[in-house]
Structure formats: C-alpha cells, structure tokens
Measured scan of single mutants.
Amino acid sequence: KEFRPGDKVVLPPYGVGVVAGIAQRSVSGVSRAYYQVDFPGSRSKAYVPVEAPHSVGLRKAL
C-alpha cells in the first residue's frame, strides 16, 4: 500500500489530512477498499480509492 495509517497527506480541495486507515465501502453493490482520510480540527472525512489515489490528487504532505 502506498499510504499507511498516520501518514500526513494533501487532498485537494480539502487540504492537509491524516490517513486513518483502510475501509471497505460498497458503491453500486461493489465492495472496494478506500483510504479514510481525517482532517484535524474538523469532523470531515474523505474516502479515496486505494487502487487509484492519485486520480483524485491524494499525495503525501511535505
């Protein structure tokens, strides 16, 4: 896996977040693995496909 729990990442347009782990989510009846990204200071979460994280701009924070 490219990202691990605890990694600081950037996800446009949300900003800097932390990978909380990998979650299985069902979309249109198909279960897939997603990185769960939490954003400190907020209750917001984002789910990014493990198979294509760069397709939505997910990258490691510098």
Rank of each mutant, 00 (worst) to 15 (best):
residue 32 R to W: 04
residue 48 V to R: 00
residue 18 V to I: 11
residue 7 D to H: 03
residue 9 V to Q: 00
residue 10 V to N: 05
residue 2 E to Q: 11
residue 46 A to T: 06
residue 37 V to R: 00
residue 44 S to Q: 15
residue 14 Y to Q: 03
residue 49 P to L: 11
residue 49 P to H: 03
residue 10 V to P: 01
residue 19 V to C: 06
residue 41 G to A: 10
residue 29 G to Y: 02
residue 45 K to Y: 11
residue 11 L to E: 02
residue 56 V to D: 05
residue 35 Y to E: 04
residue 25 R to S: 06
residue 30 V to I: 10
residue 31 S to E: 09
residue 21 G to M: 09
residue 5 P to F: 08
residue 38 D to Y: 14
residue 17 G to T: 01
residue 31 S to N: 11
residue 17 G to F: 03
residue 49 P to N: 05
residue 14 Y to P: 02
residue 31 S to L: 14
residue 43 R to W: 10
residue 12 P to Q: 07
residue 27 V to N: 07
residue 50 V to D: 00
residue 22 I to L: 05
residue 17 G to S: 01
residue 12 P to K: 06
residue 19 V to Y: 04
residue 58 L to D: 03
residue 41 G to R: 09
residue 14 Y to W: 12
residue 47 Y to H: 03
residue 55 S to R: 09
residue 13 P to G: 15
residue 30 V to L: 11
residue 11 L to H: 03
residue 1 K to R: 12
residue 62 L to I: 11
residue 9 V to F: 03
residue 27 V to A: 05
residue 16 V to F: 13
residue 47 Y to P: 00
residue 49 P to V: 04
residue 17 G to H: 12
residue 2 E to T: 11
residue 9 V to C: 06
residue 48 V to A: 05
residue 24 Q to L: 14
residue 20 A to K: 10
residue 13 P to Y: 09
residue 48 V to T: 01
residue 25 R to K: 10
residue 54 H to D: 12
residue 4 R to F: 11
residue 52 A to G: 08
residue 1 K to E: 15
residue 32 R to H: 08
residue 48 V to G: 01
residue 59 R to W: 04
residue 1 K to W: 15
residue 55 S to L: 13
residue 14 Y to I: 03
residue 33 A to H: 10
residue 26 S to M: 14
residue 30 V to A: 06
residue 33 A to C: 12
residue 29 G to C: 04
residue 11 L to T: 01
residue 52 A to C: 15
residue 27 V to Q: 07
residue 42 S to D: 09
residue 54 H to P: 04
residue 26 S to F: 13
residue 16 V to G: 04
residue 29 G to E: 03
residue 13 P to H: 10
residue 22 I to F: 05
residue 56 V to I: 06
residue 38 D to C: 15
residue 33 A to I: 08
residue 45 K to R: 14
residue 20 A to T: 13
residue 29 G to D: 03
residue 50 V to F: 06
residue 24 Q to A: 07
residue 42 S to M: 10
residue 27 V to H: 10
residue 56 V to S: 13
residue 47 Y to D: 02
residue 15 G to Y: 03
residue 28 S to R: 13
residue 51 E to F: 06
residue 60 K to N: 10
residue 45 K to T: 14
residue 23 A to Y: 14
residue 6 G to H: 02
residue 40 P to S: 07
residue 8 K to F: 12
residue 53 P to G: 08
residue 15 G to K: 04
residue 52 A to D: 15
residue 34 Y to F: 10
residue 35 Y to R: 01
residue 52 A to K: 10
residue 24 Q to G: 04
residue 21 G to W: 03
residue 9 V to K: 01
residue 57 G to Q: 07
residue 48 V to Q: 01
residue 46 A to D: 02
residue 14 Y to G: 01
residue 35 Y to I: 10
residue 13 P to A: 05
residue 10 V to K: 04
residue 43 R to Q: 13
residue 61 A to W: 15
residue 22 I to C: 06
residue 40 P to I: 08
residue 15 G to H: 02
residue 57 G to D: 04
residue 57 G to N: 04
residue 28 S to V: 06
residue 56 V to Q: 07
residue 48 V to W: 03
residue 33 A to F: 14
residue 59 R to E: 07
residue 17 G to N: 00
residue 12 P to Y: 11
residue 10 V to A: 04
residue 39 F to C: 15
residue 11 L to S: 03
residue 58 L to R: 03
residue 27 V to C: 12
residue 15 G to R: 04
residue 62 L to H: 12
residue 19 V to Q: 00
residue 20 A to L: 10
residue 19 V to N: 01
residue 47 Y to G: 00
residue 51 E to C: 09
residue 19 V to E: 00
residue 61 A to Q: 08
residue 28 S to A: 13
residue 52 A to L: 07
residue 1 K to C: 15
residue 4 R to C: 14
residue 28 S to W: 10
residue 44 S to R: 14
residue 59 R to Y: 10
residue 13 P to C: 13
residue 16 V to S: 06
residue 29 G to F: 03
residue 57 G to Y: 05
residue 60 K to Y: 10
residue 24 Q to F: 15
residue 41 G to N: 12
residue 14 Y to N: 02
residue 2 E to P: 10
residue 10 V to I: 13
residue 19 V to W: 01
residue 46 A to W: 08
residue 27 V to D: 07
residue 31 S to D: 07
residue 50 V to R: 02
residue 58 L to G: 02
residue 2 E to A: 13
residue 44 S to C: 15
residue 60 K to G: 15
residue 24 Q to P: 03
residue 59 R to T: 11
residue 52 A to W: 09
residue 42 S to V: 08
residue 35 Y to T: 00
residue 45 K to W: 08
residue 21 G to Q: 07
residue 34 Y to W: 05
residue 43 R to C: 15
residue 29 G to S: 03
residue 38 D to N: 12
residue 6 G to L: 03
residue 13 P to V: 05
residue 37 V to E: 00
residue 18 V to N: 02
